[in-house]
Amino acid sequence: MSVDAVPGRAAEPILRLRGIEKSFGPVHVLRSVDFTAYPGEVTALVGDNGAGKSTLVKCIGGTYSIDSGEYLYKGQQVHVHTPRAASALGIEIVYQDLALCENLDIVQNMFLGREEVDGRRALDENKMERMASQTLASLSVRTVKSVRQKVASLSGGQRQTVAIAKAVLWNSELVILDEPTAALGVAQTAQVLDLVRRLADQGLAVILISHNMNDVLQVADNIAVLYLGQMAAQVQRSEVNHTQIVELITAGRSGDLGLTGSAVGVGNGATA
């Protein structure tokens, strides 16, 4: 595959999936999916509604366990059956619905469930506030006035920023963002994409799910296209154009890229 010979890329993918299968009862959602993500790169995961993008990242994040296939993390075969196991490996997911507590402030949300306590088991608010501020500063976040602001008072873009900052607070190495710009206006989308780029530039592996081709083409290094639960293609950004991506998404193939005729047929049959 072309993805294996890219100059300037880390030798080893941080995540490599091979032949992933996932069914929900009779519904066969993922079919022999191969997928890789490299540190320092934004890997876009695209596909039509219901293609299986969210299911795939939930398998990566331990919300679902895979039926069969290989899950290699830093070259090691691992078994991720719970979100905790994924966090322990350094994998954090920012879900489509951000899951922030509006009644808590930014610091409280960023540390939720992992609060720092002092010697007397009381919350160490100062330590948490400092760490949260540092994380936001390291991401060059400009839009948040005070880290003690309640999330209820934040805009959509600011909330997305907080959710992303929460994910990187824990020295995570692979951050997965499920449609982070879906609900955002132009300016806020630009901010979040900037942030996504910075994460990768800092050496993290970022997986970005998006329906917006402009966003994907602007920020991604590498693009994986799911078509009806199969991986139609995973290609370098520089090797494809807008039209090819759209064809891959809608038809599963584009020229000599993508699924072979019979495979497309199998894909279609699956939805029947």
Partner: peptide, 24 residues
């Protein structure tokens, strides 16, 4: 206000799903 327990009470009251995902 000063214990993890209290913080988790607020979290569950604010967004149960978020609390669950945070391992509470």
């Amino acid at each position: 206000n000063r214990t993890r327990y209290g913080r988790h009470v607020f979290a569950v009251g604010g967004n149960e799903e978020a609390a669950r995902r945070a391992g509470i």
